[in-house]
């Protein structure tokens, strides 16, 4: 198979993969009873009605984890071509990769020292 055929497979796969889980839901929509009432449709809470807005404000710590992840995600993307070509690279390339990883490890150490990784 050539490259475009391979990706045609993935394209058809994506389309079919959406259809198959939709089938049981559609079937359930026909078969299952439908008797909604106000109490049944209530948002689930601990037994009393839910108070206030659902979108309560969260602490920023979650967001910091997200940002740290993003930085590492981009780093890994850069490392994949390096790893892929590694068999034909020399010690210089190893050094280049090492420096790349090392610079980012600095960022991790900084975050660690600044206690940005603590759950507070």
């Amino acid at each position: 198979m050539n490259v475009i055929n391979e990706w045609a497979f993935i394209g058809v796969f994506v389309a079919i993969a959406w259809v198959i889980p939709t089938l049981p839901i559609a079937l359930a929509a026909f078969v299952s009873p439908r008797k909604p009432n106000a109490i049944k449709m209530q948002t689930y809470e601990c037994g009393v009605e839910t108070v206030g807005d659902t979108w309560v404000q969260f602490k920023v710590q979650y967001y910091i984890y997200g940002l740290v992840f993003l930085v590492f995600d981009v780093e890994m993307i850069f490392l994949f071509p390096w790893a892929l070509a590694y068999n034909r690279l020399d010690f210089f390339a190893f050094g280049a990769g090492l420096l790349f990883i090392f610079l980012l490890t600095d960022a991790l150490i900084y975050a660690w020292r600044k206690r940005a990784l603590e759950w507070v």
Binding site: V14, A17, W18, P21, T22, P24, I25, L27, A28, A29, V31, S32, P33, R34, K35, P36, A38, K40, M41, Q42, T43, Y44, T54
Partner: peptide, 27 residues
């Protein structure tokens, strides 16, 4: 059994995304 159970969409839910989420999850 699951197919014949009533499917409850809670009040205030965002219907489209609510229905899409389980499909995306398995896809």
């Amino acid at each position: 059994k699951l197919i014949t159970k009533e499917d409850i969409t809670p009040a205030g839910a965002d219907r489209l995304i609510y229905n899409l989420a389980p499909i995306v999850s398995i896809v």
